[in-house]
Design a binder for these strands. Structure first.
Length: 570
RNA sequence: CGGAGUGUGGCGCAACUGGCUAGCGCGCAGCGUUUGGGACGCUGAGGUUGCAGGUUCGAGUCCUGUCACUCCGACCA
């Protein structure tokens, strides 16, 4: 490719709102342009990397025997209604109507469609496991897209689906995808941590997120420094040790308490006890207006996802002041027991502290030496709090949890029969009986992969593409091109490299200074820079420089092809 | 969805309390001089200041509404 003909120029300035390095660099180097929030065009340079990501994923799927196909982008609404997910995804889905009045969803993920497709062939146990995938644009109206390509509303995703006869077969198939994902991450040069996650709106039980560490990432996860297990925040079990092992239960008391004691800080000021010694109540309501009170230790935060999962609810909102009034209470006065027609859910940590303070606050009084099991008791007791950095690991009980930030690169789900049952996606077993298929789904975002690579491979001058993802193998720079001999030299080299099957970007601009060409080459980030100039010819060859190295060397022209190929071999 | 903020040629910005023909840099086009780390000179093209309405002799500037975009939070594959 001649640089002078390349569509998409580099730029010295970046939009002032770009915060992430990948956003800035991909923009500056002319790989991408935005049309509206979370919707991007890929320019020719970006497209070349995109294509390589495609091919790498395709090869890996081929290698593990997963077959490629494609389903329509517009999903009939009825398919989504079968699993009620038109409501679960809620505002994140775009619903459109065609000219005939038929309603469709712009597909945000395709489990339902794939299940319908599989049904069309009434599979037998002999066909299982059935493993298929597609590349297709996904549409999710993210509330807050951010970071350039990192979180968007429209994106290309590789989504794979497996359909299995039983749990055992599924586990084997799932493991195959899991291993393939680890290999793919390695091929992309991404260090991933696999964390146990909640499967959220996709549905199902278990899932693994493949997370790339990034300080500005919006996924929080925890790793145990002993057993090495990792969970994301929504899934991480919380360990609440016995904090008062040597204390005895004292008699329940109502005591005087000044009215100003309202918040946790006030409590500490007044009683001089650590925060875990108080009772804390957080009030929620579901979409039907039903009220739930989550009761936890004063030093802990309610994890809404855990609470929702426990209550089997899709939606939970904080209660408003008006809701509290209806309950006959107000902010700061919510009792840990006794309020009628609400559901109390306690955190298991309540059983590990003796003699709580609080729970029954009135204007001038409060309760003291309150004990769970004796003074109050709930029908629901579960793990509903956030794990915290430094907590003891609830599983091995030996290590400590370390909190980390990252960006989700891929996700594998064990969805079980979440779709198969309501959609009647079945197979016939050896006995001729109809059985529901055990499903899984596995996704990788193409654009996000690309951005994550840039996040991890760049320096102050620009991108440093890994060898297997670079838009071109060689960035050929011609200097002194007004000299016809040098120009011819550079051109013949350009042709020669191409003939050898190498992808070459040739900066053939005659009216551009050397400095600008160097700066552009660094910004675009192709791993090898080959320079032809008056000086290089005087020195007997061409200048060869690796993007990530400081120094260059002169090599003879007839050695060039071999050197380049050698470089790309490793 | 809550909080904060921003909209001025393709990009980055300026225009003080309302005041003259809305400026500057980059980029783009032409000519010339340059050419090893983002050169320089001259010339030129490109804007109904996001949109709608209002106040005023006069609005980029003030008011109302609206739209878009960004950041923080909540949520989320």
């Amino acid at each position: 490719m001649l640089y002078s003909r390349l569509f998409g120029k580099t730029q010295k300035t970046t939009p002032s709102d770009a915060a992430m390095p990948s956003h800035k660099l991909l923009y500056k180097a002319g790989f991408i342009r935005r049309f509206s929030t979370g919707r991007w065009s890929f320019l020719p340079l970006g497209m070349r990397v995109w294509k390589k990501i495609f091919e790498i994923i395709e090869q890996e799927m081929d290698a593990i025997g997963v077959q490629r196909l494609v389903v329509p982008t517009l999903h009939p609404l009825q398919i989504w209604e079968k699993t009620n997910r038109d409501k679960v995804f809620g505002e994140e889905i775009t619903v459109i109507e065609d000219h005939y009045g038929q309603t469709f969803i712009l597909g945000p993920t395709a489990e339902g469609m794939m299940a319908e497709l599989v049904k069309m062939f009434s599979p037998s146990y002999k066909d299982l496991p059935l493993e298929i995938y597609q590349f297709s644009s996904k549409f999710r109206d993210e509330k807050r897209p951010r970071g350039g390509l990192l979180r968007v509303r429209e994106f290309m995703m590789k989504d794979a689906y497996n359909f299995c006869a039983n749990e055992k077969q599924f586990e084997k198939s799932y493991q195959k995808f899991y291993d393939a994902y680890l290999r793919l991450a390695q091929t992309f040069g991404l260090k991933v941590t696999t964390v146990l996650a909640d499967s959220g709106a996709i549905g199902g039980a278990i899932s693994h997120e493949f997370i790339v560490d990034n300080e500005k990432g919006d996924d929080t996860y925890f790793v145990c420094d002993h057993c090495k297990q990792a969970w994301n925040q929504e899934k991480c079990p919380s360990y609440r040790p016995d904090l008062t092992p040597n204390e005895k239960e004292k008699d329940f008391k109502i005591i005087d308490q000044p009215q100003w004691v309202m918040t946790m800080e006030d409590n500490i000021k007044h009683y001089g006890q650590p925060t875990w010694h108080y009772l804390k109540n957080v009030v929620y309501k579901d979409h039907e207006g039903k009220i739930y009170i989550a009761s936890v230790r004063g030093d802990q935060d309610v994890n809404e996802t855990k609470l929702k999962r426990y209550l089997k609810l899709n939606h939970l909102d904080p209660a408003t002041d008006a809701d509290l009034e209806k309950m006959g209470t107000k902010h700061g006065y919510v009792h840990s027991w006794g309020i009628k027609s609400v559901t109390y859910v306690g955190d298991e940590g309540l059983t590990k502290v003796k003699n709580f303070i609080g729970g029954q606050k009135a204007d001038q009084t409060a309760s003291k030496t309150v004990n769970y099991g004796r003074d109050f008791k709930y029908d629901h007791l579960a793990d509903i709090v956030d794990a915290k950095d430094g907590d003891i690991c609830a599983i091995c009980k030996k290590g400590k949890l370390k909190e980390k930030k990252g960006i989700e690169w891929g996700h594998t789900f064990n969805i079980g029969h979440f779709y198969s049952k309501p959609q009647k996606c079945t197979f016939t077993n050896q006995k001729g009986q109809e059985k529901s298929l055990h499903m899984g789904s596995h996704g990788i975002g193409v654009g996000r992969s690309l951005a994550l690579v840039v996040e991890n491979y760049h320096d102050k001058n620009g991108i440093c593409w890994p060898k297997n993802l670079t838009p071109y193998h060689v960035h050929l720079l011609g200097l002194d091109l007004s000299d016809t001999k040098i120009k011819k030299d550079a051109e013949s080299l350009y042709k020669k490299l191409q003939k050898e099957g190498l992808e070459v970007l040739f900066d053939d601009r005659e009216d551009t200074t050397a400095g600008e060409k160097f700066a552009d080459a660094d910004l675009i980030g192709i791993p090898l820079r080959i320079l032809v100039s008056k000086r290089s010819i005087e020195n007997g060859g061409v200048e060869y420089k690796e993007r990530t190295k400081k120094e260059s060397k002169v090599i003879k022209k007839d050695k060039l092809v071999k050197t380049v190929k050698e470089f790309y071999k490793n």
